[in-house]
Simulated scan of single mutants.
Amino acid sequence: MTITHGDEFMPKPLVCVVGARPNFMKIAPIFRQFNSVKHLISPYLVHTGQHYDQSMKDTFFQQLGIPEPDRDLGVGSGTHAVQTANVMLGFEPVLDDIKPFAVLVVGDVNSTIACGLVAVKKQIPLIHVEAGLRSYDKTMPEEINRILTDQISDLLFTTERSAVHNLKQEGIQEERICFAGNVMIDSLLANCQKAESLAAISEKYQLRFGLEERTFALLTLHRPSNVDDIDTLQRLIYTVIRISEDLPVIFPVHPRTQQKIVQAGLNNLLENAKVLLLPPVGYLEMLGLLRGAKVVLTDSGGLQEESTALGVPCITLRENTERPVTVDEGTNTVVGTDPEKILTSFMDVMVTGGKSGRIPEYWDGQAAQRIVDEIVRRYF
Rank of each mutant, 00 (worst) to 15 (best):
M10F: 12
K12W: 03
P13Q: 02
V15K: 10
V17I: 15
R21M: 12
P22D: 03
N23M: 08
M25G: 04
F31G: 00
S36Q: 14
S36K: 15
L40V: 10
P43T: 01
Y44A: 00
Y44Q: 02
H47T: 08
T48Q: 06
D53I: 13
D53H: 14
T59D: 10
P67W: 15
R71I: 08
L73D: 07
V87I: 14
L89W: 13
L89P: 11
F91R: 00
L95M: 02
D96M: 03
K99M: 02
F101E: 00
V103I: 03
S111F: 15
T112G: 02
V118Y: 07
V118T: 14
I124K: 02
L133I: 01
S135H: 01
D137W: 13
L148I: 11
T149Q: 05
Q151K: 13
L156Q: 01
R161H: 13
A163Q: 08
N166T: 05
E170H: 10
E170P: 06
E170M: 10
I172Y: 12
E174F: 08
I177G: 04
A180D: 00
N182V: 07
N191L: 12
E196D: 12
S197L: 07
A199S: 14
S202F: 11
L207M: 15
R208Q: 14
R208E: 15
L219N: 09
H222I: 13
P224H: 11
Y238M: 06
T239R: 06
I243A: 03
V249L: 11
F251C: 04
P252D: 04
V253A: 10
V253W: 12
T257K: 06
A264T: 06
L277D: 06
P279G: 14
P280T: 15
L289N: 05
R291D: 11
T298W: 10
S300N: 04
Q304Y: 06
S307C: 06
L310G: 07
L310W: 07
C314L: 02
T316C: 09
L317H: 08
E319T: 12
N320G: 02
E322T: 03
T326I: 05
T326K: 03
V327F: 09
V327T: 06
T333S: 13
V335Y: 12
G336D: 05
P339Q: 08
K341D: 10
M347D: 10
V349K: 07
T352D: 10
T352A: 09
G353P: 10
G354V: 11
K355E: 09
S356M: 11
G357C: 05
I359Y: 00
P360W: 00
Y362I: 00
W363L: 02
A367N: 00
R370P: 04
V372Y: 00
I375L: 11
F380L: 12
